[in-house]
Design a protein around this nucleic acid. Structure first.
Length: 915
DNA sequence: TGGTTCACG
DNA sequence: GACGTACGTGAACCAG
C-alpha cells in the first residue's frame, strides 16, 4: 500500500498569480476568465496525476475568506494598503469556486484564518499521520512549512521546491525562514519589518544570531551604526513582524483529512462546467463535446428529479436536527435558503423561520418565531432565534458554500438586520431576469410553473386573504413547513435549471458584472432609508386639503351640481353632455377622455371649469400619493422611509421602486417640488444628488455612431440647440422645444403619427422632419434598421453589456402589437444600456468611497439616471470627486464609449435643494 | 379587477 | 387603405 499524499492548493495565491501571468482571456461570452482557465488547467493536471508516483491521493483547494483575521487584531494596518482586486478579476472568484466544485474537490475557507494558516493546519495534521504533503504555491511565507515529507510545487514552471531552494534563496533552512521574513518585512502585506533591512541583511543577521530575539539582544554589538540604531529603534516592530509571519497550525480542521480523498475526474459536472465556459481544448480531453452540444448543462438539468412530496419536508425543532442540516449544507457546498417573516416589508418584519434545501426534494423548515393563533393553538416548541442564527451564520457566511435564493435581496435585508451576512450567493430571480426578460415574470410561482411544471402552494391558501389574512407566525408548523420548505426546494431546483443556461445564452456577463453584485448594494440602500420632514409633509397636506375643498366648491358651482370630480366617467358627462363642450368619446369603455391634454385644450378654449379641474387633480394627486402617503410610510423604528427596489420587474433592466415609489417624487412643477424639499438630510449632514446628463442621447449617439452628435457631446454643446439648428436652421425657444421633442421621439422609436400628435402638426409634416433628421444625423437610420432586423431574426435585442430584452410581440399577427414591439426594440437597448451603466456605478461606489476614506457617505436612492447620497458636509468635496469619477467611468473597461458621460452634482439640505 | 390618470426618468 | 397616437415604471381612485 502506498503512502497517502495530500496536495493543498493555495487557491487565492494561484488566482492572483495566474491573473498577472496569463493573457486577459475571456470565456465564450465575454466574461474575463484568464485566471479561471489557468486554474482549471492546473487542477486538471493535479487530479489527473492521481496515483501517479508523487501524485495526489488527497486534494483540497484553500481560499482566503475575505473577513479580517487575527493578524488585524495584532496590527490594524496589516494588509491595509492592499488595493482591491482588479475589476476583471472579481467576477472570476465565483467561477473559480465553480471550477473546484466541478472537479468534486473540496473548497476550504475559514473566517479569521488566511489560506496560509489553514494550509499549515492541514499540513501538520497530515504529516502527523505519516502522509506526504505537497503545497501547490510559490508563496514565500508557506516555505516556512517545508520539512522532510513536505515540499512545494510551483505549477507555473513545474518546479518542486524543497529545503535546498529555501537555503539557496534565503540563506537559512525553512525552520528559520520566519525569522528572516520578519526582519525584512513585506511591503505588499504591510508587514513592517525593520527599516533598512532587506533580504540580504536579514539573512546574514539570522545566520549569525539564529532568530529575531537573538538579533535584538545582540543589537548593541553590531558594528554598522545605521543598522544598529534601526534595530534598537524598531525592536517592537521586529517582534510584531515575527508574530505576523508566524503561521497558525493548531486550529481544528474545517473538514476531516479523510474527506479530501481524491476520486478522479468526474466527467459530467466537469463537462458541464467546461462547456459553460467554452474551454474547448479541455472539453476534448474529457471525451469531446457531449452528444447534444448546447444542452450539455443538461448534465445537471436532465437528471431525473424526485417529485414534490410535502410530507417529507422536515420541521427542525432540535439542535441535533439543525446541526445535521447545517453539516449537509457544508457537505453539498451549496444550499437554497429562504426566510419567512410576519410582514412583506422587510424593514418592519420579524424573522419567523428559515427554510433550507440541500438537494431536490430534500428540504426543511426551521421555525423560530411562530406564536400560534392565540385561540386554538399555543405557541409551538421551537429552537430559540439566537441559537439558530448563531448556528446558521458560519454556513451562510462560509465563502466555500454557495447560497441560493429567490429574490435574495429580501432575505439579505432580513438577515443583515439579524447580524448575518450572506455570501457567496446566486439569485434565481435574477438568473431568470437575465435570461428571459420579456418572456416571463420572475416570481417564484411563475418560474416553478414554467420550468418545473409545478404549482407552488399559494401564500393565500396558507395565510388567507383580505381581512381574514393572518401573518406567517400564526400558521401551524406543519402547514408552515410544507409551504416554506417547498420554497427552498423549488429555489434549488430552479437554480439547477437556470444556472447552466447562463453562459450558453450569453447572460453571464450581465449577471456577474451587473445584476448579481447589485443585490447587497441595493439591500443596503433600502436599509439606510431616507429621512423626511414629517411636520412639513403634514403642513403641506393641510394646505392642499384647503385648496382642494375650495376648488371642489367652485367646480360644483360651475357644473351646476355636486359630482365626483375624481370619476373620469362623471367628469366627462358633466363636461361634454351637460355643459356641451366639444370633445369625443374614446376607447372601448365608451367614457370620454378627460386627461391632461383634453382638459388643457378645453381650458385654452376658455372653459374655466377645465382649468379648475386640472388644478384640483394636481393637488389631489400630490396629497393622496405623496404628502399623506409618505407620512404613513415612515418606519417607526428608524424614523426614515425605506422603499423597496425591484430588481427584476422592468423589461429593460431598470430598477423600479415601490412601497413607496421614491422614483416618481415630483420635481417638474413648483408646487410639486415642495414635496421634494421635505426629503431632508439628517442633522449635520447634506443631500448630494448626482445626475447623468442626457445619458440616453449620448448612448444613442454612440450606438448609432452619429458623428455630428458625438462631436457635439465631446465639445459639451447643448444637444437640443444643435438639433434645432440642423433641422430648422435657427435656434429659438420654439425650435429648441421641437428639437427636444424629436430627440425624445428618436429614443422612443419614432412614428410619424406620434410625432405629429406631439408637435401639433400633420403626419406629412412630421414625416418630413423625421426624414430631415435621418439626413442630418446619418447612423440613426441604420441603427433602427439593424435593430429591427435583429429583433425579427432573434426575437430579442441587447444592450452594450449583453442584457437581453425579448420581444415576442414582434411576431404577432396584430399589426399594432408588432409596431409596439418595434418601438420597444428601438428603445430597449438605449434605456437598458443606461441602466447597466448606472448599476455598475452603484456596485463600484461603496468600494471607491471606502478606499477614499469616505465611510460616512451613504447612497440612498437611484432614480434611473440619478444617485442620491447623504453625507457629512465636510465630505462634500472629496465625495463629489469620487462619485463623479465612478459614474463617468462606469462603463469601462468592459465598454469604451465614443462619447463622454457627463455628471452634474448638486448639494443641499434637502433633495429639492440639491438640484 | 381593470381602466384612467398622472407622478417620475 | 387600415392601423395607431412615443419608451419604461407605480399608486390612487373609481366603477363594476
Amino acid at each position: 500500500m502506498t503512502t497517502n499524499h495530500l496536495y493543498l492548493v493555495d487557491g487565492s495565491g494561484y488566482i492572483f498569480r495566474a491573473y498577472h501571468r496569463l493573457p486577459p482571456l475571456t470565456n465564450r461570452h465575454g466574461v474575463p476568465a484568464g485566471a479561471v482557465y489557468g486554474f482549471t488547467t492546473m487542477l486538471w493536471k493535479l487530479v489527473d496525476d492521481l496515483h501517479k508516483a508523487d501524485g495526489p491521493t488527497h486534494l483540497a483547494v484553500i481560499f482566503d475568506a475575505s473577513s479580517k483575521t487575527f493578524r488585524n487584531d495584532l496590527y490594524d494596518k496589516y494588509k491595509a494598503h492592499r488595493p482591491p482586486p482588479p475589476e476583471d478579476l472579481v467576477p472570476q472568484f465565483p467561477l473559480i469556486r465553480d471550477a473546484t466544485r466541478a472537479f468534486s474537490v473540496p473548497c476550504i475557507e475559514q473566517p479569521g484564518l488566511e489560506a496560509d494558516d489553514i494550509i499549515a493546519c492541514y499540513a501538520k495534521a497530515a504529516l502527523a499521520k505519516g502522509w506526504q504533503v505537497t503545497i501547490v504555491s510559490s508563496d514565500k511565507d508557506l516555505m516556512q512549512l517545508i520539512e522532510p515529507g513536505l515540499d512545494m510545487l510551483d505549477t507555473m514552471n513545474n518546479r518542486r521546491l524543497g529545503a535546498d531552494y529555501v537555503v539557496e534563496k534565503f540563506g537559512v533552512p525553512p525552520a528559520q525562514l520566519g525569522e528572516v521574513l520578519a526582519l525584512m518585512g513585506d511591503s505588499v502585506d504591510n508587514v513592517p519589518g525593520v527599516p533598512g533591512i532587506g533580504p540580504k541583511t536579514a539573512s546574514q543577521l539570522i545566520q549569525q544570531f539564529g532568530d529575531v530575539e537573538a538579533v535584538l539582544a545582540n543589537a548593541e554589538t553590531i558594528t554598522k551604526p545605521k543598522l544598529r540604531q534601526s534595530l534598537i529603534d524598531h525592536a517592537a516592530n521586529a517582534r510584531l513582524s515575527r508574530e505576523l509571519v508566524r503561521l497558525v497550525c493548531d486550529q481544528p480542521l474545517p473538514e476531516p483529512l479523510d474527506d479530501l480523498a481524491l476520486k478522479g475526474l468526474p466527467p459530467e459536472p466537469l463537462r458541464a462546467f467546461l462547456e459553460e465556459q467554452g474551454f474547448r481544448s479541455l472539453l476534448l480531453k474529457v471525451g469531446g463535446p457531449s452528444a447534444e452540444p448546447v444542452s450539455a448543462p443538461a448534465a445537471i438539468a436532465e437528471e431525473a428529479e424526485p417529485p414534490f412530496v410535502h410530507k417529507e419536508y422536515e420541521t427542525v425543532v432540535t439542535e441535533e436536527a439543525l446541526d445535521r442540516w447545517i453539516a449537509d449544507g457544508f457537505a453539498a457546498s451549496m444550499i437554497a435558503v429562504d426566510t419567512e417573516t410576519d410582514h412583506i416589508d422587510c424593514m418592519r418584519a420579524r424573522l419567523v423561520g428559515v427554510s433550507l434545501a440541500t438537494a431536490p426534494g430534500k428540504a426543511c423548515y426551521i421555525p423560530v418565531g411562530h406564536t400560534g393563533d392565540g385561540l386554538l393553538s399555543e405557541t409551538p416548541a421551537q429552537l430559540p432565534l439566537d441559537l439558530v442564527l448563531t448556528k446558521l451564520k458560519p454556513l451562510l457566511e462560509d465563502p466555500a458554500t454557495l447560497k441560493i435564493g429567490q429574490n435574495l435581496k429580501y432575505d439579505l435585508v432580513m438577515l443583515r438586520r439579524n447580524g448575518v451576512d450572506v455570501a457567496p450567493y446566486d439569485d434565481t430571480m435574477l438568473l431568470s431576469y437575465d435570461l428571459d426578460a420579456g418572456l416571463t415574470a420572475h416570481g417564484m410561482d411563475d418560474l416553478a410553473m414554467r420550468h418545473l411544471d409545478h404549482a407552488c402552494i399559494e401564500f393565500k391558501t396558507v395565510c388567507g386573504t383580505g381581512k381574514n389574512q393572518i401573518s406567517f407566525d400564526k400558521v401551524p408548523l406543519d402547514r408552515a413547513t410544507e409551504y416554506a420548505a417547498e420554497d427552498a426546494d423549488v429555489t434549488l431546483r430552479l437554480w439547477r435549471k437556470l444556472k447552466p443556461r447562463l453562459s450558453p445564452e450569453a447572460a453571464t456577463r450581465v449577471y456577474e458584472l451587473v445584476d448579481r453584485p447589485l443585490v447587497p448594494v441595493v439591500a443596503e440602500m433600502e436599509r439606510a432609508g431616507v429621512h423626511v420632514d414629517r411636520e412639513e409633509l403634514a403642513r403641506l397636506s393641510g394646505e392642499f386639503a384647503g385648496e382642494i375643498a375650495r376648488l371642489e366648491a367652485e367646480i360644483h358651482a360651475l357644473a351646476g351640481s355636486p359630482f365626483t370630480i375624481g370619476s373620469p366617467k362623471q367628469l366627462g358627462e358633466i363636461l361634454f353632455d351637460r355643459l356641451g363642450l366639444k370633445g369625443g368619446r374614446k376607447g372601448k369603455t365608451g367614457v370620454y377622455s378627460t386627461d391632461v391634454n383634453e382638459l388643457e385644450r378645453l381650458a385654452g378654449d376658455g372653459a374655466e371649469i377645465a382649468a379648475k379641474v386640472l388644478e384640483w387633480r394636481q393637488l389631489a394627486k400630490l396629497k393622496s400619493t405623496y404628502t399623506d402617503a409618505l407620512q404613513a410610510q415612515i418606519n417607526p423604528a428608524t424614523n426614515r422611509v425605506h422603499t423597496s427596489f425591484s430588481l427584476a420587474v422592468a423589461q429593460t433592466g431598470r430598477l423600479s421602486s415601490t412601497d413607496p415609489n421614491l422614483q416618481n417624487i415630483p420635481i417638474r412643477t413648483a408646487i410639486g417640488r415642495r414635496i421634494r424639499d421635505a426629503f431632508v438630510a439628517a442633522p449635520g449632514k447634506l443631500i448630494l444628488s448626482a445626475d447623468y446628463s442626457q445619458i440616453e442621447l449620448r448612448l444613442a449617439a454612440h450606438m448609432a455612431e452619429v458623428p455630428a452628435l458625438r462631436d457635439a457631446f465631446a465639445r459639451g454643446e447643448d444637444i437640443h440647440n444643435l438639433t434645432a439648428m440642423e433641422l430648422f436652421g435657427e435656434v429659438n425657444r420654439e425650435t429648441r422645444g421641437r428639437a427636444k421633442t424629436i430627440n425624445f421621439a428618436i429614443l422612443y422609436g419614432i412614428s410619424s403619427w406620434g410625432l405629429a400628435g406631439r408637435l401639433g402638426v400633420d403626419r406629412i409634416e412630421a414625416q418630413a422632419m423625421i426624414d430631415r433628421y435621418f439626413d442630418r444625423f446619418p447612423g440613426i437610420n441604420r441603427y433602427i434598421a439593424e435593430t429591427l432586423t435583429k429583433v425579427r431574426e432573434q426575437g430579442y435585442v441587447t444592450t452594450l453589456f449583453g442584457r437581453k430584452t425579448h420581444l415576442p410581440g414582434i411576431r404577432s399577427s396584430k399589426q399594432g402589437e408588432r409596431q409596439a414591439a418595434e418601438r420597444q426594440a428601438i428603445n430597449a437597448p438605449i434605456q437598458g444600456t443606461s441602466a447597466d451603466i448606472i448599476k455598475r456605478a452603484m456596485v463600484r461606489m461603496g468600494p471607491a468611497l471606502a478606499e477614499a476614506g469616505l465611510a460616512d457617505v451613504t447612497m440612498l436612492l437611484q432614480v434611473h439616471d440619478e444617485l442620491v447620497f447623504e453625507l457629512p458636509e465636510s465630505d462634500v468635496p472629496a465625495a463629489s470627486a469620487v462619485i463623479r469619477r465612478v459614474m463617468e467611468t462606469a462603463a469601462e473597461p468592459a465598454i469604451r464609449l465614443s462619447v463622454p458621460l457627463g455628471v452634474e452634482i448638486g448639494t443641499g439640505h434637502s433633495w429639492g435643494a440639491a438640484h
